[in-house]
């Protein structure tokens, strides 16, 4: 983790909704719980002491169920919502101290956003929508149309320039939304449940599109979702929120293998582990006694390894990348990994 620069950092962030957040904040800091606070003072605890670092060029996924505060959290990053207390650092600068003009510059040039309900301008064409961030910045008509057309093409929407958003399907509308965010040429992209309103097949397409774009553009993406499969597919860093607080964060494979909380355990119980877990997460450095049946890549998922073994539970594989042996993987390790783990507290025995 040492070679990665932190792009966005959230420090001790609190958000309380109600008439007198300052007084409620003192109560929360002294240990009042969310339901208790609501009961006694009629204040809603939105976010409770959030600390997250988001690395440059990575996809940070913030996952939680409805009401967990994930949409509130992402809106703090560009200050669509003001926090009650805490710091938001972008490139090591505290954006909460910024005045309107500086903040507007951040929103125009450093951060772009993709929305769950697309939020395109219904009275503008697809091209004008994609060019909207540039128009806002005052870029000349010709230049912004060219830039917008380039990104529309990149997301697979060429030739639809003069359509209006309502003439497109949901998936296509969200492609316009992504093209709009990309056209602003910002380093940071905020995606608020960007694919949640789409049907499953289109959603998979869009996820693939995002990963493809990311492998090329290396933006810092903060992605919000309530769908664990989506989170595991996209995340470099996964943050799980519950009732406005971070329950666990880290590398998604690590969370899957070592849940620290019964809540997360329950959450990951229904996951197809064979398809999500990768060889690199469970391989061992120790050279096994038996015969090596073949070579696998560290990025392969367990399902493909099981398929390779043809169901034989005694085989062992060597994990190889670029001709270098990284470790070994035996079928028993795979079998063990497929059984959902108890949270670390419970499995100690």
């Amino acid at each position: 983790m040492t070679d990665k620069t932190v792009k966005v950092s959230i420090r001790n962030l609190y958000k309380i909704f109600g008439e007198d957040p300052a007084a409620a904040l003192a109560e929360v800091k002294s240990g009042t719980s969310k339901p208790e606070l609501l009961d006694r003072t009629n204040h809603v605890l939105g976010l409770n002491d959030i600390n997250v670092d988001m690395n440059e060029g990575e996809i940070t996924v913030i996952m939680g169920l409805s009401g967990s505060g994930k949409s509130t959290l992402i809106r703090h990053l560009n200050r669509l919502i003001e926090p009650t207390a805490g710091e938001v650092l972008v490139n090591d600068e505290d954006i909460l101290s910024w005045k309107d003009t500086r903040l507007r510059q951040l929103r125009r040039e450093t951060m772009s956003m993709v929305f769950q309900k697309f939020a395109l301008l219904p009275h503008r064409t697809v091209l004008e929508n994609a060019a909207m961030p540039l128009a806002t910045r005052g870029v000349a008509q010709e230049a912004r149309a060219a830039e917008a057309r380039k990104w529309l093409e990149r997301v697979g929407l060429s030739g639809q320039d003069d359509q209006y958003p309502h003439q497109l399907s949901g998936g296509m509308q969200q492609r316009v939304g992504i093209a709009r965010a990309l056209a602003s040429n910002s380093d940071i992209m905020l995606m608020d449940e960007a694919f949640s309103a789409l049907d499953p097949l289109i959603r998979t397409d869009m996820q693939d599109l995002l990963l493809e774009l990311q492998s090329e553009l290396h933006k810092t993406i903060i992605f919000i979702t309530h769908d664990l499969d989506e989170a595991l597919k996209l995340a470099d860093h996964l943050v799980i929120l519950k009732d406005g607080a971070v329950v666990q964060q880290g590398e998604p494979q690590a969370i899957l293998l070592n849940p620290t909380d019964p809540y997360i355990e329950e959450f990951v119980a229904d996951i197809n582990r064979a398809r999500v877990l990768r060889v690199r997460s469970i391989m061992t450095p120790a050279v096994p006694a038996g015969e090596i049946a073949g070579e696998v890549a560290p990025g392969d998922n367990l399902e493909s390894v099981i398929a390779r073994a043809g169901g034989d539970v005694a085989q062992t594989f060597r994990v190889v990348r670029d001709g270098k042996t990284l470790g070994y993987l035996g079928m028993p390790d795979i079998m063990r990994a497929l059984v959902p783990r108890r949270s670390s507290g419970a499995s100690a025995a």
Partner: peptide
């Protein structure tokens, strides 16, 4: 939602 998008793009 559209107003929020307008805000988010500065």
């Amino acid at each position: 939602d559209v107003i929020e998008a307008a805000d988010a793009f500065g």
